[in-house]
Amino acid sequence: MLTINNLHLTLGGNRILNGLDLSVPAGEVHAIMGPNGSGKSTLSYTVAGRDGYEPDHGDVTLDSESLLEMGPDERAARGMFLSFQSPPAIPGVATMNFLRTALNAQRKARGEEEMSSAEFLKVFREHAKTVGLSPEKLKRPFNDGYSGGEKKRMEMLQMALFQPRFAIMDETDSGLDIDALKMVGEVVNSLRGPDRGFLVITHYQRLLDYVKPDRIHVLAGGRIVHSGGPELAQELEQSGYEQFAEEAA
């Protein structure tokens, strides 16, 4: 499904990604763990196609199709979703209007029929309830006056709404309490299926109690230095990342 091949990327003269290889088959959830500055967020921006994050070498494919020549909106229409580590507030942009525009833009790009206002409203309300965002909050401009936790709920609402083929969750757990972590687990688990893949980026093991990964990868020095099964999370929690520092260097 998602294949990253020998990815190299330089930002401001610094090599951030350094020959990263990763493959997440359809139906699986993989986690990436790694110390600060190991390139986790850079990886998510590169895969999503942010301006300025064009790789020097390597390729990123989704369902065997290279994403690198596509703009972020084209990648989104192919089913790529990024749950942002720090989602921005967008003052003046009405939440529902924006999300319906986005959903229908994706549908249009895929040659699907647009969703009517009524249908959208129904689906939107359901997901809002699941993630625990009140109708009052949703009347505000996008993320305007939202707490960190509420912004993360909004990310999960959108993941449920867009039903992506592949979702990257960039530190969705940071700043969340136990109840919110449970909610994230519910959303991910309800979406898990044979046609969908997830890449969960995190510092800590605790999210993985709610979202059980199939594989865990350690990212250090801009590449994957170690991979293992779910038990690796516990190991890392106890022994830290230092053991991989040498491999990264």
């Binding site: 999503a48 196609g49 942010r50 301006d51 703009g71 972020p72 909106d73 990648r75 989104a76 229409a77 979703f81 990024l82 942002f84 989602p87 921005p88 967008i90 003052p91 003046g92 942009v93 924006f98 999300l99 525009t101 986005a102 959903l103 833009a105 994706q106 790009a109 401009p141 959108q158 867009f162």
Partner: peptide
């Protein structure tokens, strides 16, 4: 705001449309 523009595009809104929405939002005040 490049963060807002990238965010909207990541959600599927084509660049020109995203710019249009952000311009409208700016004027709305």
């Amino acid at each position: 705001d490049p963060d807002a523009l990238f965010y909207m595009r990541q959600r599927g809104v084509p660049e020109e449309e995203a710019r249009g929405l952000l311009i409208e939002a700016f004027a709305a005040e």
